[in-house]
Design a binder for these strands. Structure first.
Lengths: 317, 317
DNA sequence: TAAAAATACTCCATAGGTATTTTAT
DNA sequence: ATAAAATACCTATGGAGTATTTTTA
């Protein structure tokens, strides 16, 4: 089969008008060059070079092949450089998926500095429930996910990125705003709003309760809402209180319209995991992004003071 | 060095999503396919295919390479077909040179049927003296020439194409029009016009005279003209008579304004030769043209009756 | 005669094969 | 347990070398 090496040698012969000079140029002996040219001439079934003794000149067919060779070899070089560049260069589109909290609050905050540093990058964030995000990572539609722990799929690799501790969220004028910690027993009597079944937030709550030996049914559930925002509105309208991630209600906590307090005897910590396909090789862009956000998550995204009274003092700047 | 074969195998793996299926498709064993892919991955320094067990899918880099491979291999195929077609196909431009008579009268008549048969052909005729035509054939500017015999250049191959017999050309009212043959002795007394020095026509005349033991100076030369047309005008204006190729004055012979007669004791035959570079491979187009005009010259181009009285009778159609 | 391509031959690097192991479903 | 890729190892083709002959300026 004709290959690029033959054409490369041929090209050199045309350029040097000599077999032996071309041979020197590509570190081949003159007889080897002869055999390459012979191969091509046999392959195409026609003479490509006229050996005039003094110099070697291409025939019409040789001229055609020379022109084509130039283009073909130039294109080969283009491929080489394109792939070489691709190695290091952070460029192109990165599709990330996130469940509600990561997709709605964490990722939007993380990608800001990244896209500022790498202007040729487009990050696409897709929000969905943990399971559908994981499915899309499996299928390859998404290269990366940021979700809660998955059901241990063999093809999924997860790496803990960030810890989140849910809090009891109450209106600013709720009687408990002055209390430092509420007991679990007290909570069970309060009207309570939950996220819909299947949501990560509800799942985390169920897990936490179970860890303390309780069940969801023991709560006085007065409403079930389809989104964090809806729950939030429910709280503000005094329908009930709920357990949410402070990250999701940061605005209201800052504004003072909602307050976050801890519950004694209930571990509400949960983690979000960087989620990748175990076998698929991440693109350099993806690798760079992972590196970037891991570093970014070393310094806390959300100031620890956010949930203290200190945090609610008017800012001086 | 990366070659097209690697890319071809790689492409098949991507398409079949399998090393072994790809191997079958290109008649290679699965381990051989493995080694090809390994070569490419080493060459580019990155993983190109993710082996997911169930199927094999390209990485981002693999996708890039696949796209490029398609183009590169398509271009390779284009080259193959282009050169394959070039073999048989009569197409393109053919540069031919001719000295005065062939370039001005013979070739224009010959190429007519050829360009009619091969519509994608352009014939370019360059007229010049024999020596410059031969030089251009040597340099490759012209692929073919039609000229008188050359000075036996080693690199020139000549092949007799057509014979021409020069005649004494006289005005229609010249006293000799009724005579069948003029003797050489009579000719020497007549006012005579010659072509300029260096012209093929003059050279032929000198040669013919020499063959009969005469010299040019014995003629009563009254004028020297730079072209056949000029000589012709000179004859019509009774400046003198001349020896020319009847081919060049065909129109006047037909119209009866000039007459052509033979000269006893003077062999005025000369030949025109197809002239090629001995080492250079002629293009298929050139080969085809040569074949064509050789066949065309078997039937006389100029009717033998042209120089008889019969010829001058009014045509009935 | 000198210089360059073609030819003859020799050799070894490697493409490709078979057999087997490893890995993943 | 099965199917597919990786690995190990072997073989043989042909790419590339040296030496020589042929060709041509």
């Amino acid at each position: 089969m004709m290959d690029l090496w033959h054409l490369h040698v041929f090209r050199k012969v045309v350029e040097f008008k000599s077999f032996s000079k071309a041979g020197k140029a590509v570190n081949l002996s003159q007889p080897t060059v002869s055999s390459h040219i012979k191969y091509l001439e046999d392959h195409f079934g026609c003479r490509l070079l006229d050996r005039l003794g003094k110099e070697v000149l291409p025939t019409k067919a040789g001229e055609m092949l020379y022109g084509y060779s130039q283009k073909l070899l130039a294109f080969r070089d283009e491929i080489e450089t394109a792939l070489a560049n691709f190695q290091g260069i952070v460029k192109g589109r990165l599709a990330i998926g996130g469940s509600t909290i990561p997709g709605g609050y964490i990722l939007p905050r993380l990608i800001g500095p990244f896209v500022r540093d790498y202007s040729e990058v487009t990050i696409s964030i897709r929000i969905g429930d943990t399971q559908s995000i994981i499915n899309e990572v499996l299928s390859g539609e998404l290269e990366l996910g940021l979700v809660g722990a998955s059901t241990e799929n063999k093809h999924i690799h997860q790496d803990m990125l960030i810890e989140d501790e849910m809090k009891l969220i109450i209106p600013y004028d709720h009687p408990w705003v002055t209390i430092k910690q509420v007991g679990l027993a007290q909570l069970l009597k309060e009207p309570f709003i939950v996220r819909e079944k299947g949501s990560g937030t509800l799942q985390s709550l169920v897990n936490s309760l179970a860890a303390s030996g309780h069940k969801l049914e023991e709560l006085r559930i007065v409403a079930e809402m389809g989104s964090t925002t809806a729950v939030c509105q429910g709280i503000k309208n005094r329908i009930g209180i709920s357990i949410l991630s402070p990250i999701a209600v940061e605005e209201d906590l800052k504004a003072g319209t909602l307050r976050a307090i801890s519950i004694k005897g209930l571990n509400l910590k949960r983690s979000f995991y960087l989620t990748q396909h175990r076998q698929r090789t991440p693109s350099p862009l993806c690798q760079m992004f992972i590196q970037f956000i891991k570093k970014a998550c070393l310094k806390p995204l959300f100031p620890p003071t956010m949930f203290t009274d200190e945090f609610h003092k008017p800012t001086s700047t």
